[in-house]
């Protein structure tokens, strides 16, 4: 029997007092802390609704799709379904962005593309074009410029090949769009067949992943939801599975939840394997 190492009574490191910022000392297009991002505005910027927490200067906020800006928007927003969730900030000043105390990161694209979960995208420069991804619930940014995205916990980058839990996926860059992967063993045999039919019976919760192959980067977060429902072994309608468990109303229905988090709707009965074909519009 060996005893565990004994921690000493913890002491905090000597604090050097809180840092205060003003309009001049706020960072220029950089993080203030891991959870707040400061934008120096001189022109226009696209923001998801309600993500601006404070600003200095002369800035106005316009809903996307409100008259005067429509021409600009026509070029940037190829995603009419999401337009109602966005505003345009215009003017000069510094503004601080934040989202539910999630970690924020900025990404610089140089003639690149990055696809990100719609609820995670916070803001982007108008030099970037926003398009709806073919994967429901995801948005693709194209071109050159900077954007800001939120994640639950720091973003972890992984190179393919890798399989990820749908909830943990923040987005991906460059690599081909993901495929769905179902655990082989899980679907085999009598029990597997039964599970497939009923969607019931001990599910590990991990029989379904997104699989990435090829060259690129995959962005992972700890989880999408802060306090999700605990899984009780049902396979259907996992949060984070685009359209998972939702009755499909045509393919355009891919956008849900006002661009915030995907709703966690539960449709009991059929497992999520049953509507596989329809879900992908195959």
């Amino acid at each position: 029997m060996s005893y565990p190492p004994q921690p000493t009574l913890p002491w905090s490191t000597a604090g050097q007092g809180p840092v205060t910022y003003d309009a001049y000392s706020l960072p220029v297009n950089d993080n203030v802390n891991p959870y707040a991002f400061s934008v120096e505005l001189n022109g226009s910027y696209f923001l998801q609704k309600g993500k601006m927490v404070a600003y200095y200067g002369d800035i106005s906020f316009q809903g996307v799709g409100h008259g005067a800006l429509d021409r600009l928007l026509g070029q940037q927003f190829n995603s009419p379904l999401h337009a109602s969730d966005w505003v345009v900030a215009q003017g000069r000043g510094k503004m601080v962005l934040a989202d539910r105390a999630f970690d924020l990161n900025s990404y610089d694209l140089d003639q690149g593309n990055l696809t990100v979960r719609s609820g995670n995208l916070l803001a982007f420069e108008p030099t970037l074009a926003l398009k709806q991804s073919i994967i429901p619930g995801f948005l693709t940014l194209l071109g050159t410029g900077k954007f800001v995205a939120a994640s639950n916990g720091p973003v972890h980058f992984m190179e393919p090949p890798v399989r990820v839990d749908p909830q943990a996926l923040v987005g991906w860059a460059d690599c081909p769009a993901p495929c769905h992967h179902y655990d082989h063993h899980y679907m085999q045999g009598v029990l597997g067949g039964l599970r497939r039919l009923t969607g019931l019976g001990g599910a590990s919760g991990e029989e379904h992943q997104f699989e990435f192959v090829g060259a690129g980067q995959v962005l992972l977060q700890s989880s999408e939801a802060l306090m999700p429902e605990r899984s009780v072994g049902q396979v259907d309608a996992e949060p984070g599975v685009p359209g998972g468990g939702l009755p499909q109303q045509g393919y355009q229905g891919g956008h849900q939840g006002g661009g915030q988090q995907l709703p966690n709707l539960q449709v009991p009965g059929l497992g999520n394997l049953g509507d596989l074909g329809r879900r992908f519009g195959l």
């Binding site: 399989r163 943990a168 001990g202």
Partner: peptide, 18 residues
């Protein structure tokens, strides 16, 4: 814990443990 896997590489299986 079920549902705690975020991602993996290689050949790994996850079996529910009744």
């Amino acid at each position: 814990q079920r549902g705690a896997m975020l991602g993996y590489r290689g050949e790994v299986s996850f079996t529910p443990n009744l």
